[in-house]
Amino acid sequence: MKRMVVSMSNIFYSIQRYFVVFWRYLRLALQVRLAYRASFFAEFSINVLSAVSSLLFIEFLYANIPAVAGWSHDEALVILASYFIIQSISWLFLMSGMWRFDYMLRIGSFDRMLVRPMHPLALIGFSEIQPETVVDFSLALFLLGRYVFLYSFPPVWIIILYILFLFFGVVILLSFLVILRTINFKTINTWSISIFVQDISNFGRYPRQIFQGKLFRFLAATILPVVFMGAVPAEIFLGKVDWWYVVFGFLTAAVFFLSARFLWNRALKSYSSASS
């Protein structure tokens, strides 16, 4: 019992420590952005535009048809919001750094991340923080707020389950990315992995019912688990909880996380670093 208390306090200490370091990196990223004023405004505007275009797509779609796979316009916006939250958190912590991972391997700046007293993945993610992801996140909160305002506030247990599944969504997406990115240790120069992950995760913004046929339904919940990157959390938020998917989401998150950890550690052992 005492040992458990000690290990729990260690975990909390680590989490706190990583947040402190993250905060320091975030401030550096902001300072770099502000050093180039024009670039700051450009990045910000582009992020707003791309978020708005995702929103417009749904608006145009629902101007033509009343429902897609049983989802109304307002419900579809909740999927988009959940998708945005999962994406923006993933981008903030790891994805933008991973976007340049092959470059880090090629020029050898990854070496530095292996000698510092922190997890190399955290250092990869923190070194390329894009503060602009706050745009998607704010839009997502606005969309959720809109739904609650128009309909009703979900019960507390739903909120808790929803947050938990947003977290699972982030875990699944990032594990998926890390698993594919370990290929880079062998191939070094394969930038398209990040694009592939982005393309696949794009499916996260649609209802899971759009997948036709047993094979694709199965794929979308297992090997390419896109349903957990938007649709399933949204169902929970809307109170349409499918317990089968809740159990499955928990298992998928665990399996993906453990495989990512295993494959990453194994890949590090064969890492041969850039030349001398």
Binding site: V21, R24, Y25, Q31
Partner: peptide
Amino acid sequence: LWWDLPAMETFLLNQTIYE
């Protein structure tokens, strides 16, 4: 060192990383 920032910023970063 962070290219666009004064060296002091990297020092402060190292202070947090190395505790």
